[in-house]
Design a protein around this nucleic acid. Structure first.
Length: 563
RNA sequence: UGGGGCGUAGCCAAGUGGUAAGGCAGCGGGUUUUGAUCCCGCGACCCCAGGUUCGAGUCCUGGCGCCCCAGCCA
């Protein structure tokens, strides 16, 4: 992968980094430790990229470290497949956690001890209330909650009960361990939140060792403290949890004192970035899988051919704040094009073939023409492209009765075949249905390479492929997964799925050099866009995905005029 | 009507009392063997209303709007 590094030389500036700089300057910490804490219950998406780039980026900038920690506290939703995919995706994005791989589940024993510590201090109690009763006692947003009748059990009884919860004496859901804070707090997270629940489910890592599992609130901050995390960066919805986060750290014998800071999560137009919705798309078969090229997952973007550097650049450009936002996908697409324009090699490929016969080109003859691999990068060198009497051009590059501003091929008009010759369409061949099936053209041998000795100009250069040498391929055209910029804003988001998000062109013709296209690396098909070989490719059946189209002001003008 | 946040251009986003950066999108124009790229140009009564100040996007007061929280999810 020939990636172009475009990291802005200037360091990112944002409120989080300002806080860290101040903490360092004022001695509140002497090094920086962050962590990226995914729950292994789904694949990573571009929203996670924001957190990954932040956590790993900050650690690198300040000479600290960033841990990869799995918050694996809910075995009913978590799977090993996700533990593996998440690691692969973080690496692909370009980050390395070295030896610092952790699991919240590795702390289960410590967490159990700390729960007992709270019980002994009279700060936690085993509650026999059912889930419904707990909800009923919790109150509402405007009314305070009521204390559980079990709230004042003696520490000894609580200790005994908690041990028996662990020992499996009670059925799932029949008891919880709760921390005793304040049932009247305006912050609902402080109304005696649950620390432990009974859950008989096989954990991906600890198996059946436990039948009680700590909740997020009792595992996350504690794991941070155990790992020595200094800055625990998370998204805005956890802001309300910070008082609880701090309360627990204050009341537990933790080895360190992490601080939580919140930033706003990324939202993108024309897609969804909630794990719930993405999981639904996969499970209900609306897409082919987590790595479907239409998906905003890192796996999907990778399969589409999006370079990781483009994603990093995108994240860098959108900034980091606490404001709710929905970034236009166009911003991402711009980053992808910008990186690919410099890094991707160019090839000729005809997506919707229309046969062209050069009548004055000798039958049975062929020749090789030199073509630039990347006009944006001379170091990419050149290649030979075969030319012959019979060619294919794209149907969109010919119009029998062209409108005023159409400059491509039409009867009697001279155009350039890229890197080859000037040609003029002399005759249009149609089938019985009146459809154009072939063009009879003549070429000017004097224009070999694409320039006329007499200096005459043409208004268009089109791409082509020699029929005799062409490779066949299937090309998948990917578009936005949703028609609306804000899927689900009015009704069910599934109703907003773009039925044309994936269309397949079965009979494309490629220049021979494309036979050596590497898997997953985007290549520019000139005048069309960037494409990459898909893993669905089989011997004799190449499949390409379109990473992204080139900008097309002609199509845009057409669309505008057509309205 | 409880608690926590957020409001600067169509979309992101700088700005930390001294007279509104930058990017994306859009619109013009130039170059061009990709209608691409590249280059040039064009956009703000800073949510509103008062107040403090020589001076307010920045400070104060009062409104308004939007987001999050009532999982034994994270």
């Amino acid at each position: 992968m020939k990636e172009v590094e475009t990291q802005d030389p200037e360091e990112p500036r944002d409120f989080i980094r300002d806080i860290i700089r101040a903490d360092l300057a004022q001695g509140r910490c002497d090094s920086v430790v962050t962590r990226f804490p995914p729950e292994p219950n789904g694949y990573l998406h571009i929203g996670h990229a924001k957190s990954i780039c932040l956590n790993f980026g900050v650690a690198a900038e300040f000479g600290g470290r960033c841990n990869l920690r799995f918050d694996d506290t809910n075995p009913v939703k978590e799977e090993h497949e996700y533990i593996d995919s998440i690691q692969a995706d973080v690496r692909w994005l370009g980050f390395d956690w070295g030896e610092n791989l952790f699991f919240a589940s590795d702390n289960f024993e410590t967490l159990y001890d700390w729960a007992c510590h709270l019980i002994r201090g009279g700060h936690a109690y085993v509650d026999d209330l059912s889930a419904e009763d707990i909800r009923a006692h919790r109150g509402t947003l405007t009314e305070p909650g009521k204390n559980s009748p079990f709230r004042d059990r003696a520490p000894e009884e609580n200790l005994d009960l908690f041990a028996r919860m662990r020992a499996g004496e009670f059925a799932d859901g029949t008891r919880t361990l709760r921390v005793k804070i304040d049932m009247t707090s305006g912050n609902i997270n402080l109304r005696d939140p649950v620390l432990y629940r009974i859950l008989r489910a096989t954990h991906p890592r600890s198996g059946d060792t436990w039948c009680i599992y700590p909740t997020y609130d009792f595992a996350h901050g504690q794991s941070d403290a155990i790992e020595g995390v200094t800055h625990s960066l998370c998204t805005l919805e956890f802001e309300d949890h910070r008082p609880l986060y701090d309360w627990l750290i204050d009341n537990l014998p933790t080895p360190s004192r992490p601080r939580q800071y919140e930033f706003s999560r990324l939202n993108l137009t024309h897609t969804v970035l909630s794990k719930r919705r993405l999981t639904l798309l996969v499970q209900e078969g609306h897409v082919a899988g987590w790595d479907d090229p239409r998906m905003p997952t890192l796996a999907g973007l990778r399969r589409r051919g999006v370079p990781p550097a483009a994603i990093r650049d995108f994240i860098h450009r959108i900034g980091l704040t606490k404001s709710d936002n929905r970034v236009e996908v166009a911003a991402l697409e711009h980053c992808i094009r910008e990186h690919l324009n410099r890094s991707a090699e160019r090839r000729l490929a005809v997506l919707r073939p229309l046969k062209v016969v050069i009548e004055n080109y000798p039958e049975g003859q062929s020749e090789e023409l030199e073509a630039l691999n990347n006009p944006a990068n001379p170091d990419a060198g050149t290649r030979q492209v075969p030319f012959g009497r019979e060619l294919y051009i794209d149907r969109a590059d010919f119009m029998e009765e062209p409108p005023k501003k159409f400059f491509r091929m039409s009867p009697g008009r001279e155009v350039r075949l890229r890197y080859a010759y000037f040609v003029i369409c002399r005759e249009v061949v149609k089938n019985d249905a009146g459809e154009v099936i072939e063009l009879r053209c003549t070429y000017d041998p004097q224009t070999r390479g694409g320039n006329a000795p007499d200096g005459r100009k043409v208004k268009a250069t089109i791409h082509w492929v020699s029929a005799a040498h062409a490779l066949r391929a299937e090309v998948r055209i990917t578009n936005h997964l949703f028609t609306r910029p804000d899927p689900g804003a009015e009704g069910d988001f599934l109703q907003d799925i773009n039925s044309e998000a994936m269309s397949v062109l079965e009979d494309c013709r490629l220049e021979p050099a494309l036979g050596e296209a590497p898997l997953g690396e985007a290549i520019q098909f000139e005048r069309e866009g960037y494409f990459c070989l898909d893993p669905d490719t089989k011997p004799g059946h190449a499949v390409f995905n379109r990473t992204i189209a080139l900008r097309d002001s002609w199509a845009k003008a057409q669309a505008k005029g057509g309205n």
